[in-house]
């Protein structure tokens, strides 16, 4: 059995390398994007093999799903017939080799330092303090209690990315609209209507699960965001809808970060330490922060598709 597992792991690793090579160096953009999505699907499998289902969920939803759809949408807006740097000029060759050698050495150095990391890691210490965090799943405890500051910074970075994307908006080009599909089949709107309850149900389930098992705000937000992206791509109406609810959109986009900050500052008032909250409040606060963060993440992922602030 272990030989089988070893063979499977080697196959996964080889597949990852091959897909990464294809995604980077293939001539056609479309196959590069498809290879990129397949790469992230395999990456999710790798995380499953490494016993990290939380990361696998986020990787599959964000890497393969949302990023893939974003790249495909961007591809559809590019002029057809142009191809990526098919024939590198001669003076670029040394630079290319230099970059590849540098990347290779970086990878070797990373592998070496990962190999020399302390072995059991911090899992034991996290498990020992799990009772004091208010949740029973170690990953959620780390993300939203023990290292909540890191998570706050991640949310801030995503918000900054949305601001950046929106600042590149309409003034540079014509206002962008949802794609009209080449054929008017009823199947696509029907699919989005049919799947919509699932796009509400699954994030709620993931949020609830996050307190005691793999799940939580990031996968929930990613799934909800994917549902929203499907809506944006299949129907033109939600774009207008977003345009008419700008204030609500702004409030919800900032909700995760705002609630996080309120909780952190409230903890400072109550206990004297930034981000320290009393144990009896912890489960409620963590759940509230998770819900707000998931909503914010979903809207941020949708906002990347708007290419500019709605209503501007």
């Amino acid at each position: 059995m272990s030989v089988l597992a070893w063979g499977f792991d080697m196959l996964l690793a080889a597949g990852l390398l091959w897909l990464a090579w294809q995604a980077l160096f293939t001539q056609r953009r479309f196959s590069a994007v498809v290879n990129f999505m397949a790469f992230y699907l395999l990456m999710a499998l790798v995380w499953v093999r490494l016993d990290a289902p939380d990361i696998a969920l986020a990787e599959a939803a964000i890497g393969a799903g949302v990023t893939g759809a974003l790249l495909l949408t961007a591809l559809g807006r590019l002029p057809a017939g142009t191809s990526v740097g098919a024939d590198p000029r001669r003076w670029q060759r040394p630079l290319q080799h230099l970059a590849m050698a540098g990347a290779g050495m970086g990878v070797i150095w990373l592998a070496w330092s990962a190999y020399h990391l302390p072995r059991p890691g911090l899992a034991g210490e996290v498990t020992a303090t799990l009772d004091a965090t208010g949740v029973s799943h170690a990953v959620t405890a780390v993300l939203l209690n023990l290292r909540a500051f890191d998570t706050l910074l991640e949310i801030v970075i995503m918000l900054a990315a949305v601001v950046l994307v929106w600042s590149l908006g309409p003034p540079l080009g014509p206002p962008l609209r949802a794609f009209a599909p080449a054929t008017a089949l009823p199947g696509l709107p029907a699919l989005s209507h049919l799947l919509h309850p699932f796009f509400v149900l699954v994030p709620v389930y993931l949020l609830w699960r996050g307190t005691h098992a793999p799940g939580g705000a990031f996968p929930a937000g990613a799934v909800m965001g994917a549902g929203g992206v499907l809506l944006l791509l299949t129907e033109a109406r939600p774009w207008e809808y977003l345009r008419h609810h700008r204030l609500l959109l702004h409030v919800l986009l900032a909700a995760g970060m705002a609630l996080f900050l309120v909780v952190a500052l409230g903890g400072m008032l109550l206990t004297g330490t930034f981000f320290a909250f009393p144990l009896f409040l912890a489960p409620t606060l963590i759940m509230a922060v998770e819900i707000a963060t998931a909503l914010s993440i979903a809207l941020m992922l949708m906002a990347f598709y708007l290419y500019g602030e709605p209503g501007q």
Binding site: P181, A182, T183, L185, G187, L188, A190, L191, L195, F198
Partner: peptide
């Protein structure tokens, strides 16, 4: 079930788009 619905509609879309193109 979800895969059946998604791939059925996806395949129809791909096929009809290919025909239209």
């Amino acid at each position: 079930l979800l895969m059946l619905v998604a791939s059925g509609i996806g395949a129809t879309l791909i096929a009809s788009t290919a025909l239209a193109c």
